[in-house]
Design a protein around this nucleic acid. Sequence first.
DNA 1: TTGACATGCAACCAAATGGTTGCATATTAA
DNA 2: TTAATATGCAACCATTTGGTTGCATGTCAA
Lengths: 105, 105
Amino acid sequence: MSMDAVFRALADPTRRQLLDSLHARNGQTLSALCAEMDMTRQAVAKHLAILEEANLVATIRKGREKEHYLNPVPINEIAERWIGKFERGRLNALSDLKKRLERED
Amino acid sequence: MSMDAVFRALADPTRRQLLDSLHARNGQTLSALCAEMDMTRQAVAKHLAILEEANLVATIRKGREKEHYLNPVPINEIAERWIGKFERGRLNALSDLKKRLERED
DNA sequence: TTGACATGCAACCAAATGGTTGCATATTAA
DNA sequence: TTAATATGCAACCATTTGGTTGCATGTCAA
């Protein structure tokens, strides 16, 4: 699995939005994803191809449609690259606390 | 903190290598980091500026030198964006297992 | 002070990137 | 079969990106 493909795929805001959309509702089809994007279907298809190439999205053909699923594994590997095992727990605890405090506003 | 800056900063292999270098030895100066890179000092300085702008690297001036330190917080936020709290533990367990198995070869 | 070293700033250029339009293919439903 | 729908492929173009060279500034040591 090429990590370069993963990082380049994540570099574009449109592709991150696509991942957000799949994170919210997994298994969406190309045209469903297009509905939320403000660009041509061809452009969206290109972005999805890049995400698929990076193994961040897996697809299943269903007849003339194609379902898209988010794959979180490469994203986890990013964190592991620069965050030590101990730091990991500390950072997650901090982040969880921050979120809880934000929710109390 | 702009996440777009973080993702664009991570998109380049040279900048990831710089983070690797700081992960291995934190607090390095510009010329120290240049020694490992196969490009001009100016190019490396540009990359470091981008990492600093993204808040992935913090710097402290020491006289005529400038020390660079890796900041893991934005990287942790990436993982939290697309990995649920439950998945997180599962993925880390899987990843730890994989690493342990690889080490046994 | 003077010379050497560490860093900063700017102009320039080739290559990559993200979007468009146009057309082709394949599947479902009437 | 035929029309509508879902996706695929390719050419084209403006902008961004990553590198270079050249020069300026600032600090330490002799």
